[in-house]
Each structure stands twice: as C-alpha cells, then as structure tokens.
Simulated scan of single mutants.
Amino acid sequence: MIEVYHNPRCGKSRNCLAFLDNSNQEYTIIKYLEEVPTEKDLKDLLEKLAIKPIELVRQKEKIWIDNFKNQEMTDETIIQAMIAHPILIERPIIVKGNKAIIARESDKIEAFFKVK
C-alpha cells in the first residue's frame, strides 16, 4: 500500500493527492503533523528516500531559522528537531514498498510510479 505523508494546508501536498486520485492509485494518508513520526519512522523514511536528515528539513521554516539555522547539528539532533517540530519535515512524501520520494512536482511522482 502506498503511504502519503500529507499536510492538508500545503498546496503541493493536495496536488500530490489529486495526482494519485487521477491515476487511480490507492493510498493511505499519514497526517504527520497530527501523527508525529517516531525516531524509527524517520530513520526508516530517510533510508527509503536515500537522503541525509538535513535534506528532509524545510530550512525556510521560521522554526528552523529561529532555532536551528547555522548551528552545528548531528544527524541525530536534526531528527530530534523534526520530531519536536514536525512542520520542519518536507512534504508531501510518497512511500511505496522500500522506496520513497519527496513528491513536490507531478513529473517526479509520475516517474516514481513508472519505475519498476
């Protein structure tokens, strides 16, 4: 089953769901601001995305700028910051099996589903 880390207030996230609906994909929504991912969830997600924790952070968010920007942080402290402030997590994220993408553009979503 496809999982989508979704923020209903985000236009890119809503567009992602519309794309999936239009392509008749079945999926489960994870409202990650309400169901905050655990440390294990985030580490699994990062592995599926094949990125470092900093690459999953929305670095233009006020919380990041005010509290974390220009600080020396380990991967672990970045993960803890995302758990404490889930708004920092990039969105939307599509997970299918052992692969995932940050699905901000429809062409990336389309390419993701064409890969076998």
Rank of each mutant, 00 (worst) to 15 (best):
I2P: 00
H6L: 10
H6S: 11
N7K: 12
C10W: 02
G11E: 11
C16F: 09
L17N: 05
A18V: 13
F19D: 01
F19T: 02
F19L: 07
L20I: 05
L20Y: 02
N24S: 14
N24F: 15
N24C: 11
Q25E: 15
Q25H: 15
Y27H: 13
T28D: 11
I29D: 01
E35A: 14
E35F: 12
E35N: 14
T38L: 08
T38I: 10
T38H: 10
K40H: 10
D41N: 15
L45G: 03
L45Y: 11
L46H: 09
E47W: 06
L49C: 06
A50M: 07
K52I: 04
P53R: 07
P53W: 04
P53G: 08
I54V: 13
E55S: 11
L56P: 01
L56E: 03
R58S: 07
Q59D: 04
K62L: 12
I65E: 06
I65G: 00
D66G: 05
N67D: 08
F68S: 05
K69V: 06
D75H: 10
D75P: 00
I78F: 08
I79D: 01
H85Y: 14
H85F: 13
I87A: 09
L88W: 01
I89P: 02
E90D: 10
E90I: 04
R91P: 00
R91W: 06
R91A: 02
I93E: 02
G97C: 05
G97S: 05
N98K: 12
K99F: 09
A100G: 07
I101Y: 01
I102T: 11
A103P: 00
E105K: 15
K108R: 14
I109W: 03
F113Q: 01
